[in-house]
Deep mutational scan, measured.
Amino acid sequence: MTVLPKDIPGDSLKVTVGTANGKPGDTVTVPVTFADVAKMKNVGTCNFYLGYDASLLEVVSVDAGPIVKNAAVNFSSSASNGTISFLFLDNTITDELITADGVFANIKFKLKSVTAKTTTPVTFKDGGAFGDGTMSKIASVTKTNGSVTIDP
């Protein structure tokens, strides 16, 4: 049996954390987006972790974005102690894959008090994996961190 590389060099799934701005007490939304989904033969499963400074940001909610089908079954998240974990699994293993680019999740943060303008990162942590529509590992994932700026 011969195994051929399935990824064209330079191609990767792009996962990007967005940015937001606000004043202390505001609730802002930071999107997590996927790009080049079709090039990577869709997404059938993924789990990953984001870190944030809990002294500056309070997670209000984490909701599935419009590219997630049947989110009540296929999407899960949790947030505590400065870490947000995400889990997606197409429970049907074929019919509810992520097949389009767009917003995977929206994180709502309540901004805490600061004395001066502060930009705090929302960054990928170690761990996690992504699988394509056949549940094979997506070897190349380009992750881009985001941030939230609090301006009193």
Rank of each mutant, 00 (worst) to 15 (best):
T27V: 10
A64R: 06
K39T: 11
K23L: 10
A129M: 00
P66L: 12
N145M: 02
P121A: 06
A129H: 00
I67P: 13
L111D: 00
P66I: 11
V114A: 07
I150E: 14
G25S: 09
V17D: 05
D26N: 11
S80W: 15
L56P: 07
G51P: 14
E58V: 13
K69P: 08
G128V: 03
E96G: 03
T33C: 09
D11V: 12
K6G: 06
S80A: 06
I84K: 02
T142E: 04
L87F: 03
K41R: 11
I150S: 14
F75T: 02
L13D: 05
T94D: 00
K69D: 13
G22Q: 10
V114W: 10
T115Y: 03
F130D: 00
D90I: 01
G127T: 02
T115W: 05
F34C: 12
L13R: 08
I67A: 14
E96V: 04
T29C: 09
I67R: 13
A54V: 12
C46E: 01
S55T: 12
K6Q: 11
K69W: 12
D126S: 15
L57N: 11
S77N: 15
S140R: 13
T142M: 09
F88W: 02
D101H: 08
A71S: 11
G18P: 10
T29L: 12
L50V: 08
S136M: 05
T16V: 11
G51E: 09
K39H: 11
T134W: 06
F86M: 02
K112P: 03
A72H: 14
S140T: 10
N74P: 01
M1K: 14
M40F: 05
K143H: 01
D132R: 03
L57R: 05
P66N: 09
T142H: 08
T120N: 09
T149F: 15
K125Y: 07
T144W: 01
T120R: 14
P24D: 08
T99D: 04
L97M: 06
L89I: 03
S147N: 05
T115M: 05
L57W: 12
M135C: 00
T119W: 04
D101G: 07
N106F: 07
L57C: 07
K117P: 04
P24C: 14
G10Y: 07
P66F: 13
V103H: 06
I98N: 04
F88Y: 04
A71P: 13
F124L: 04
S61F: 11
P5R: 02
